[in-house]
Simulated scan of single mutants.
Amino acid sequence: MISGAHVILYSQDAEADRAFIRDVLAFPGVDAGGGWLVFKLPPAEVAVHPTDGPPQHEFHLMCDDLDSQLGEFRSKGVEITRPVSEQRWGRLTAIRLPSGAELPLYEPLHPLAHGL
């Protein structure tokens, strides 16, 4: 039986991004050995979208109140990299990780599967 999902983010500054996940996002974690941190994620969902291009994967964080979350991030000095856009399925933006990578964030307007 499947017991969970493991998401991998590839980073050009893994230590800084790990510290961001630990200190700014405040995700608890464990040392998987040798200082290799693995973090607990909030409840998750997976969706499969059609594409005409090559297959790819995306990772988005979800929140209940995007405006409040962005205010909290701004107070911690986190860069918001995209203006909030209103989509059919939710309100979308992104934040900057210390490595320079973007991490999308959205407030879903669709029914949620993670509580099933």
Rank of each mutant, 00 (worst) to 15 (best):
A16K: 11
S85M: 06
V78L: 05
E58L: 01
Y106F: 13
G53D: 12
E107T: 02
A16F: 08
T51P: 04
D31G: 05
A32D: 08
P55E: 08
L92M: 15
A113D: 14
A5R: 07
L92I: 12
A94H: 11
V30C: 09
V84K: 02
P50E: 00
D31V: 13
G90R: 06
D23H: 05
Q69P: 12
Q69W: 12
L25T: 02
V46G: 13
P111S: 07
S85A: 08
I80P: 01
G115Y: 12
H6W: 09
L25C: 01
D13E: 03
V30P: 09
D52E: 15
P104G: 13
A44G: 05
H60T: 13
A19S: 06
G53P: 14
R88F: 08
S99F: 03
Y10I: 15
S3M: 11
R18D: 03
G115E: 11
I95S: 07
F59Q: 00
F20P: 04
I8H: 10
L41Y: 04
H110E: 14
S68V: 11
Q56M: 02
Q56D: 04
P55C: 09
S85L: 05
D13L: 01
V46S: 12
E102W: 06
P108T: 02
V84I: 08
Q56H: 05
